[in-house]
Each structure stands twice: as structure tokens, then as C-alpha cells.
Design a protein around this nucleic acid. Structure first.
Lengths: 184, 184
DNA sequence: ATAGAATGAGACACCGGTGTCTCATCTGAT
DNA sequence: ATCAGATGAGACACCGGTGTCTCATTCTAT
């Protein structure tokens, strides 16, 4: 049974990433607690959503830390980031699908920080000659998160095996869909 | 002023792709009509959402037809598909973000048909030796639509210039983020 | 075993959105 | 000019979700 905040938040992400309009009853049931207890932990729906967003962003920030994206060559850093972020792909799916969060300044700032770190990674990679310069760092960052969210949804719905997710994400994003006769 | 069904549907997509929980007032205002007229055209919110989904899927099907994805070599077919679908990227963003649509069997079937066509394209490309076989056709299809939706959001929010959208999408998806010393 | 705290189940009022109605106004055709 | 049809604005009841409360039950520490 999940009684502490973080466990409830994890359960809430699982439900909300699929259906952002899920009722509090459903979220409470998913967390294994009653609606009354859910209300005791979080003052209301708005607060819950906000905390779920903040919690998700903290975990994304943790993944960026774990991957040490600021260190080493850019390609290896991105591969580390993929491995670190894929287990929390559902969180990214939630953040991506939740536009109303962007009204909250605190959430917005947290997101901006993480996005800037990823953009910086791509910019560094472009300067190192690792990443293509025809595609803007902003677009690379956005597309990367789109694919991470896509992986989250696909795994949740059983369309992609968790075992394959990191490989599929990294290979498609880095190498593209086209087959190459020789690797650079 | 938008009085016919399709104009209203287009306006509704513009609002709903950003905020799926937008009120009918907002949708009506975006379409330039009153809430009363909106109700005269569509019996209710549920019917409106369903029609918006069907309308979006019809346009995606039209894009697949326009691109003639079943003809020619797979890479050219995909590039044609990108050009055809990018103008309606917002529609894909709406479909991607709307999970509750999947309860409707008619919508589900329509979607399944289009997804199957795209999967067949990737399968054909893999058999032709154009697309990589390490990535499943199902994942390629899913990732492609994820990126199309991402383009739709990015363009809507002004983070990506419409002029660059087709190029950015096709190049990243086909070629990946890595810079190559030689093209195949 | 017992007291205190925490939880679950249910009841209930409140609120915002929706669906429906009426009526005034506007448009277009004759 | 006149009439029929369509539209907009507003009012209003209904409904589902939310927020709050109470009370019985369960868990936990002493």
C-alpha cells in the first residue's frame, strides 16, 4: 500500500500519463488508497497535478545528473541520457501531454532548466562536429523529448518491449531510419 | 465566419490540439459562432470530439493518398508523405493526445487502417534494403507519428518555423541526429 | 491490552460545464 | 417591404466531479 507522497505520485503518473482527465477516484484506487486519504495528502486536484509535474521534472533532472550530460563526448552523453531517462519515459509522456501545467511559473522554470541542459548538449555536440548542424539544437531537443514520450506511451500500452526501448530510441534518434552501407 | 461543419471542425482542432479539455464556449468562439449554433451543428461535446477525430483521420488518409505511399521507392514515398502530412501536423497532434477517442470503434478502425498503411511502407522499405531492419516497422511507424505530432505542437507554439518543419522532420527521422562524414 | 493516530467508506453540499429552451436580431430571397 | 430561416445572447435546470465532513475500523506504539 502506498501511503507516502512519492508512491502516490508515481501511481498518479501512471494513470495521468494515459488519461490526463482521470477522476480522483481512479487515481486514488491506482495508488491503493481512498479518496479521503488522497485529499489528506494533497489539498485538491490542482495541487496534485502540480506536484506530479514537479515530481516528474525532478526525476528528469535526476536522470540528466545521472547521465552527466555535461561531461564527455556528446554522443556518449546522449546515450547515457537515453539509458537514464527511459525508465521514467512515462513521466515525460505525462509532462508532454499536460499543457495546463505550463501556467505554473515554478513548473515552467523547472522545465526550462532541464530543456536548456539538453539544448546545450546538442549545441556542444554540434560544435564538436558530432551532431548535424542543419537541424537546430532546439528542434533536436524537442524531437528527443517527443520520442522519449512516445517510448513511454508505447511501453505502457505494450506496443514496445521495455527491453528494446532504450535501443530503439537511441538508434532511431541518432542514426535515423535509413540503412547505411557503411558506418562513419 | 465559419458556418459549415468543416470550418468549425478545423477551428475546433486548433483549440483542442492545444488544450483537449477546452470548454465549448472557447471552441465556439474560435470558430466565430455562438455556443447555440455549435450545439445545432453537433449534438454535444462527445459528438464534436468524435467528429473532430474522424475529420482529422480523413485528412491523414488524404495525405497518405496524395503521397501515394504505396508506390515508388520507400524513401521517396516517405519524403512525399512528410510533405503531405506536415500541413496537417496539428491534426496528428490532436489524435496523438486524445486517448479517449480510442474507445470509439469507428475511429479506432480508421486509425488502424492508416497506421497499417504506414507500417506497410516501412516494411516494404526494409525489404528493399532502404530502412534499417534493427528497428521494427511498428516502432518506426509510431515514432514517425510522434515526430509529426511534435512538429505540429512546435509550429503551433512558434518554436519551429513552418518553413523548416518538413525539412527538419524528414532529415531527423531519415538521417538521425548524428553527422556523417559521407552520405551513403 | 489500551490509547492514540491514521485510514476507509459513505454522505452531502457546492460548483462549473453542459444541454435545452426562449426570444430578439439579422440575413436573404421574393 | 415582407416573410422565412438562421443566428446570437441570455436564462435555467441538470449532472458529474470535487471538496468537506462524520464515523466506524484498522494499525501502531507503549
Amino acid at each position: 500500500m502506498a501511503t507516502d507522497r512519492d508512491s502516490v505520485l508515481e501511481a498518479a503518473v501512471g494513470v495521468l500519463s494515459r488519461r490526463p482527465t482521470a477522476h480522483l477516484d481512479e487515481i486514488a484506487r491506482a495508488a491503493g488508497i481512498s479518496r479521503a486519504t488522497l485529499h489528506r495528502i494533497f489539498p485538491g486536484r490542482e495541487a496534485l497535478i502540480r506536484e506530479v509535474g514537479a515530481h516528474s521534472l525532478r526525476k528528469v533532472a535526476g536522470a540528466l545528473d545521472t547521465a552527466a550530460v555535461e561531461e564527455g563526448d556528446a554522443q556518449s552523453a546522449l546515450r547515457r541520457l537515453v539509458d537514464a531517462v527511459v525508465p521514467d519515459a512515462a513521466l515525460c509522456a505525462f509532462i508532454a501531454g499536460e499543457s495546463q501545467l505550463y501556467d505554473d511559473p515554478e513548473i515552467n522554470e523547472l522545465w526550462e532548466i532541464q530543456d536548456a541542459r539538453v539544448r546545450a548538449l546538442f549545441l556542444r555536440g554540434q560544435q564538436e562536429g558530432v551532431f548535424r548542424i542543419e537541424l537546430s539544437a532546439g528542434w533536436l531537443s524537442e524531437a528527443f523529448f517527443d520520442l522519449v514520450a512516445g517510448v513511454g506511451w508505447a511501453v505502457q500500452d505494450g506496443r514496445l518491449a521495455p527491453r528494446d526501448s532504450a535501443f530503439s530510441l537511441a538508434e532511431l534518434f541518432l542514426g535515423g531510419a535509413l540503412r547505411r552501407t557503411e558506418t562513419p
